[in-house]
Write a protein that binds this DNA or RNA. Structure first.
Length: 412
DNA sequence: TCTGGGGTCCTAGGACCC
DNA sequence: TCTGGGGTCCTAGGACCC
């Protein structure tokens, strides 16, 4: 007997834009975008004109002259998201929050208390609308993959329940792009071989698929297209890397610019690490040139670090190497720091392990961390902008406000 | 007039060890 | 001295997710 649908995927529709329309009734029913230089979210009315997130503001206005662009109420996004997640949490403890506006729920054990999955799905939609005021789409199915696809097909403000007896028929005609792991590049490669629907993908030759997308991806894609998805709903997943990046338009990569931007990024990353008593061993710097080609340079340190200055120094030296390897490039459009190899470090051990220029255990290493820690404490009391390194304090360069960055951060 | 920000996973080659 | 194979770690790049 087929298992009944017990996985729900709940996904708020055009979340940031919907919040703006909730806060300001004058925006309802109208094409709006959240952002400024770049669109962070578009309402459905704006999407109908072709406006998408990531699009530059002038292009969005070109596509949709009546577009209203709003700056965004970032603290409201967090507050309303928490309210929605709280509602979801009343139906099961088995919740996997994927991002600020999306979560999987396993309601297999909730029947006695709350009824069948389809009843719960309807109840969730009713309550989120009534109690929060936001539209939310829900997919209910036997697996995460099916539930996710169902919610995407249901959008906006819809509900689809996939009957286990009808799963194949449901998937068959849908575009391959809906399969988890198929992005623009894979979609194009598949299309060039005549594979456009999930049904095509399910029937495709495994060897040919491996040649197109590689061994691992081929295995997953084939399984998903054939409706096999072994993934469980997993609570409280933590990040394995921590990073920050800043787009720079078109900038000459002068030492001054590098110091300023990498100082700011290192400050964001290192203070997050310290707040969770974490340190990292591997640092990767990404430099994107004008024209979107990007390169990375990374290094793995002998001892973990968590101080802002140590991270900044490593990042600056990696950036120098990256630029020196590409002398033909005269302008850059982005700098990024990513750190990985997270370790949990007791405070004392961490301070001793921080390598300064003179090596691990150098007196200045402990001093640096001490400076960081007192700065962390001042910020805890007076806010992030209360104090910072001279370079890091001039942080307004990025196109996106720092509050927005916080919304996408995963727990570490 | 070009393209935000925080993440995950995979591939492939090389170094190194046993 | 030469050769082989497996495992692990590191680096660089790329596709993808939200």
């Amino acid at each position: 007997m087929a298992t009944r649908p017990a996985i729900l995927h709940a996904d708020l529709d055009a979340f940031y834009a919907s919040v703006e329309q909730l806060l300001d009734p004058a925006l309802r029913g109208r094409p709006i975008a959240v952002g400024g230089g770049v669109v962070l979210a578009a309402s459905y009315e704006a999407k109908r004109h072709g406006v998408t997130s990531g699009m530059v503001g002038w292009r969005a206005r070109e596509l949709c002259p009546e577009l209203t662009i709003v700056a965004g109420h970032f603290s409201e996004y967090r507050r309303l998201s928490e309210q929605v997640m709280e509602i979801l949490g009343t139906y099961t403890p088995a919740i996997e929050q994927v991002s600020i506006d999306e979560a999987f729920l396993d309601v297999a054990g909730s029947r006695r208390l709350h009824g069948e999955p389809d009843v719960i799905a309807r109840e969730i939609r009713r309550r989120v609308t009534a109690e929060v005021g936001l539209p939310i789409s829900v997919g209910a199915a036997r697996t995460k993959h099916l539930a996710k696809i169902a919610s995407q097909v249901a959008k906006p403000d819809g509900l689809i329940i996939v009957d286990p007896a009808r799963e194949r028929a449901f998937l068959e005609p849908l575009p391959v792009r809906l399969v988890w792991g198929v992005g623009p590049a894979t979609e194009a490669r598949l299309a060039s071989r005549g594979v456009t629907t999930i049904g095509d993908l399910a029937r495709s030759d495994p060897d040919a698929l491996r040649r197109i997308v590689g061994v691992a991806a081929a295995g997953k894609l084939h399984a998903l297209a054939n409706n096999e998805d072994p993934r469980d709903v997993r609570r409280g997943r933590r990040a394995h890397s921590v990073g920050a990046q800043s787009a720079l338009g078109r900038s000459a990569p002068t030492p001054g610019l590098r110091a300023e931007v990498l100082g700011h990024l290192a400050d964001r990353v290192a203070s997050r690490l310290r707040a969770r008593r974490r340190a990292i061993r591997t640092v990767t710097v990404r430099v994107r040139f004008v024209g979107m080609r990007s390169i990375t340079r990374s290094t793995t340190l002998e001892h973990p670090i968590a101080s802002t200055l140590a991270l900044r120094e490593v990042a600056e030296s990696l950036a120098s190497i990256a630029l020196a390897d590409n002398p033909g490039e005269s302008a850059i459009s982005l700098l990024a720091i990513s750190t990985s190899g997270l370790v949990e470090e007791p405070e004392v051990q961490l301070e001793l392990a921080v390598p300064g220029p003179a090596g691990p255990g150098a007196p200045e290493a402990a001093a640096r961390l001490a400076v960081d820690r007192s700065m962390d404490r001042v910020r805890e009391r007076f806010g992030r902008t209360a104090v910072g390194y001279a370079a890091a304090a001039l942080s307004s360069r990025g196109a996106v406000p720092d509050e927005f960055r916080g919304l996408a951060e995963k727990e570490i």
